[in-house]
Computed example of a mutant assay.
Amino acid sequence: MRFSIKSPHLRALLWPGLLGLSLSACSSLSSLAGESFTLEGELPANFSLKAQAHYGVANGCDGRSQAKSFESGFQSDPQQYRFTIPVSYREGLCEMRLARVGLFIHGRYGDKDWQQTYDNGDLVIVDKLPEGAPTFQSNGTLTKQAECSWLFKLSTAKSRFGQIDKILTCKNAGAHLVHTELSNKVVSLSFRESADERPYMNGFWLKTTIGWKPCTGRWGTELEELCTEPPQFKTFEMNGRACTVYPNCTE
């Protein structure tokens, strides 16, 4: 049944109330916005962190999963980073809930584009913590430290064949987080760069008192090879120089 309000005096009395109800409904739709947690910590010089938060639909509406990215950028000195990451929010009528946060730890060891690489970490959102997983302290902070190391090898790329190439590997770069306990909490995840570099392949470089020397001789190739007895060594290129030992180049 339809009806209309013909009296202008009655319309004047009813419209403010109807408008108030409408604004109240709009306000309730956005009430879930603002639930968040803080991801913060320290990065070594020439490191950058990108956090990619992934969200799924939590209330059965016809919506798609989404992602939000946060990035610190590179700095030549150690830096502090701080990201405020939503735990849940509204997208129209859809209730979006945090599913996980992928971490991309970038490091650079030179000024060329190929002298950058990265390793991954992960903040896993769970309903219950795995046995032994650390929990939030009484002050609402979960503190962890990741250690990143450089692995070196001789490049096989044609454009830089025989030059020192590095791979980044980071341990302990992540955490398990309970979704219902995450709002307004702080995850403090700092990264430390190890000074101890080591070869990417075991047995292909020989450690001496003056540094690491790449072996050759078993197959006679131009790449580093498994060390023989007695060992034979080859030269390599680093920063435009012909070198015999890493990292000091010359003996």
Rank of each mutant, 00 (worst) to 15 (best):
A33H: 10
Y81I: 10
A53I: 10
C94G: 03
F74I: 11
A45K: 15
E71R: 02
T84H: 05
K50H: 01
L32V: 08
Y89T: 00
L49W: 09
E42D: 15
E91V: 12
H54M: 05
A67C: 04
S72E: 02
G73N: 07
P44N: 11
G73F: 09
S72D: 00
S88Q: 11
R97V: 00
C61W: 09
G41L: 13
G34K: 07
A99K: 04
Q66K: 10
S76T: 14
P78H: 15
Q75D: 11
F47G: 08
L98P: 04
S48F: 02
Q66H: 07
N59R: 09
Q79V: 05
G92C: 10
Q66A: 07
L93K: 15
C61R: 12
Q79S: 11
D77T: 14
L93E: 15
Q66E: 12
F83K: 05
K68W: 06
A33P: 00
P86N: 10
A51E: 11
Y55T: 00
R64E: 04
G56M: 01
L39S: 03
Q79H: 07
K50W: 02
R82D: 11
Q66C: 00
R82W: 11
G73C: 11
L32A: 02
A58H: 05
F70L: 07
E40L: 11
A51L: 11
H54V: 02
E91D: 15
Y55N: 00
A33V: 04
S36Q: 14
A67H: 07
P86M: 08
Q80G: 03
T38Y: 08
L49T: 07
F74S: 03
R100H: 15
L39C: 10
F37M: 04
P78L: 13
A53W: 07
S65T: 06
C61D: 04
S72M: 01
A33Q: 10
G63V: 12
L93A: 15
Q52R: 10
S72K: 01
G63D: 09
C94F: 07
Q80H: 13
Q79L: 07
F70N: 04
N59G: 08
S76Q: 14
K68D: 01
E42S: 13
M96R: 03
V87Y: 01
F37W: 03
C61E: 13
E71Y: 00
M96Y: 00
S76F: 09
A67Y: 06
L32S: 02
K68I: 09
A99N: 02
R90G: 04
S76D: 14
L43C: 11
E35V: 00
Q52C: 05
G60S: 05
K50T: 12
T84E: 08
P86F: 02
Y89E: 01
P44R: 13
V57F: 05
G73Y: 10
R97T: 03
L32G: 01
A51V: 12
L43A: 10
A45D: 14
S72Y: 04
S48A: 15
Q66V: 06
M96L: 08
